[in-house]
């Protein structure tokens, strides 16, 4: 009579579990490293709330350094994680990766007066990480959700900056932020959302919009909107009508 349990089965399963544990440990180390770089960069970026735009040229290069370290760590993570099924361990790094993306998005937005928004494609190029793999290729990549969640983070940050920029006397920036956030808000309304984390975060955008609108309202009430920005927003309004 054959035994109940195949004698080789135990060792086979045991070694697989041990392997899995080892992979998780290794991933945790890399993710920790990423987390540290991200926190540092986020900390630097938080200075925008007290730094006038004229001082950006000294602040932003520092941010860029932090971002470089992040990109290097993401590359390390990508090389290691690509050996394993992506979605098996994806939950380990998705949060810090989103935070990393949002520092890059915010940096890019602040770095030029035209306030460019990095698209998923351009951010994927920036990290040299593929984007949204849905076919058979099972490798490390950036997902649509991660990009969108990162975008929502910078909306929150910018709505705070709108207020603080007024305090710093830069009312034009508040108006620029308002235009940007409103456009993004409209963009998010294009999405069909399910009852998930993305839906929850998208729902929060309206509070950011309201916050910035209140700031702009306060400014307009007191005639504090700079002429150039007023012209721009005025046109904006006309276009919509």
């Amino acid at each position: 009579m054959p035994p109940m349990i195949d004698p080789t089965l135990f060792d086979q399963i045991k070694s697989k579990i041990e392997e899995d544990t080892a992979v998780r440990k290794e991933l945790e180390q890399i993710v920790d490293e990423l987390h540290q770089h991200v926190s540092f960069t986020q900390g630097l970026l938080s200075k925008i709330h007290s730094t006038p735009r004229s001082k950006y040229p000294t602040l932003l290069p520092q941010v860029e350094e932090g971002i470089k370290s992040q990109v290097a760590t993401v590359a390390k993570l990508s090389a290691y994680a690509s050996q394993f099924p992506y979605y098996k361990y994806n939950h380990k790094w998705t949060r810090p990766l989103q935070d990393s993306l949002s520092t890059v998005l915010l940096y890019s937005w602040l770095s030029s007066p035209s306030h460019p928004l990095l698209t998923p494609t351009s951010i994927s190029t920036f990290y040299s990480i593929p984007l949204n793999l849905t076919t058979t290729e099972d490798k490390f990549h950036l997902t649509t959700e991660e990009y969108l969640l990162a975008l929502i983070s910078i909306i929150d940050d910018l709505s705070r900056l709108a207020m603080n920029s007024v305090t710093l006397g830069d009312t034009a920036l508040a108006v620029e932020i308002s235009t940007f956030i409103k456009d993004l808000h409209a963009g998010f309304q294009v999405l069909n959302l399910k009852n998930d984390i993305l839906r929850k975060r998208v729902d929060s955008i309206k509070y950011a919009v309201k916050k910035v609108e209140d700031v702009v309202y306060d400014l307009s009430l007191r005639g504090l909107i700079p002429a150039a920005a007023a012209g721009a927003t005025g046109e904006e309004e006309k276009k919509k009508e």
Binding site: E145, D183, A186, G187, F188, V190, N192, L198
Partner: peptide
């Protein structure tokens, strides 16, 4: 119309299609 068209609309439409496929 509830949805305003702007420079980001095409990007969000692409992302919507990706999300829809997944859902």
């Amino acid at each position: 119309k509830a949805v305003v068209q702007n420079q980001f609309t095409p990007m969000f439409e692409t992302l919507r299609d990706e999300l829809d496929q997944h859902h």
